[in-house]
């Protein structure tokens, strides 16, 4: 859209850069090409049981995510019981509509590949990329079992993962019908640039709660020491 990244130039050497860099070897690609797509392209063959997953989980994951993946000490819960059989049938988690409920990973995720891919690339957080493929299968299986998507005796593998996908509670929960992906997509919210007498009654409906006044520390120490707008000493109460 904006400006062409390269201008037209007069140098005869301009496009002779093909020799820079080199071909990647198959072994190199195998070492780095770890992504797993929703259609399971990239998924290595293998398998892992819920049972193996459970013991691995206790060893390598539970300290951060809790024994049942329901802790929010390090991160919001991965699983927490807000998923119903009706959700699994519909492919849409109804409790996402309930604003009083915490929204867990398993409530939101629409593609099982996402869990496999992410655990494989990034977990455990403090030692990423140390799990074997079978271990990743077993950990995904364990998480699925915690959310009652599979049974305790389930063994997840590259062969049956598509069937699991068909059970994922929020598999139909995503829409790509919006204008925020493509540069020329249509905006969904509109305003006008009215200049005069635009709002009839201006009413403040939300203030920062008083307890939050000093919750980020003394704001005076977060502003320049000289300034036309000096920082408020929030260790003092309002208007003091």
């Amino acid at each position: 859209d904006t400006e062409a990244p390269l201008n037209s130039v007069s140098s005869p050497w301009q496009s002779s850069y093909e020799s820079v860099g080199r071909s990647a070897t198959p072994a190199e690609i195998a070492s780095w090409d770890i992504d797993v797509r929703p259609d399971f392209t990239g998924l290595p063959a293998g398998s892992g049981s819920v049972e193996d997953g459970e013991s691995l989980w206790m060893e390598r994951c539970a300290s951060c995510h809790g024994d049942f993946a329901d802790s929010n000490k390090f991160f919001s819960p991965l699983v927490s019981g807000n998923i119903t059989e009706a959700d699994i049938a519909a492919g849409h988690v109804a409790s996402l509509n309930d604003s009083t409920r915490v929204r867990t990973t398993l409530m939101k995720v629409a593609t099982v590949s996402t869990l496999w891919d992410y655990i494989n690339r990034a977990m455990p957080w403090n030692a990423p990329k140390t799990l074997s493929s079978d271990e990743v299968y077993s950990l995904v299986a364990y998480l699925l079992s915690l959310a009652y998507i599979v049974d305790y005796d389930f063994v997840l593998s590259n062969e049956n993962i598509a069937e699991v996908q068909a059970l994922l509670p929020n598999r139909n929960g995503m829409t790509q019908e919006h204008g925020l992906w493509k540069v020329d997509g249509l905006a969904d919210v509109n305003n006008t640039d009215c200049m005069n007498n635009c709002e009839q009654a201006v009413k403040v409906e939300s203030f920062i709660p008083d307890f939050a006044r000093n919750a980020h520390g003394n704001l005076q120490q977060q502003m320049r020491v000289f300034d036309p707008f000096q920082g408020i000493d929030t260790t003092q109460s309002k208007g003091a």
């Binding site: 797509r37 939101k108 996402t114 829409t175």
Partner: peptide
């Protein structure tokens, strides 16, 4: 690719309970 930060996060929960992705 539906990776974690475009399939579990950076998605927008709409009033009808659907998430806008991407």
């Amino acid at each position: 690719y539906a990776t974690k930060d475009e399939a579990i996060h950076y998605i927008d929960l709409m009033p009808d309970g659907q998430h806008r992705q991407y």
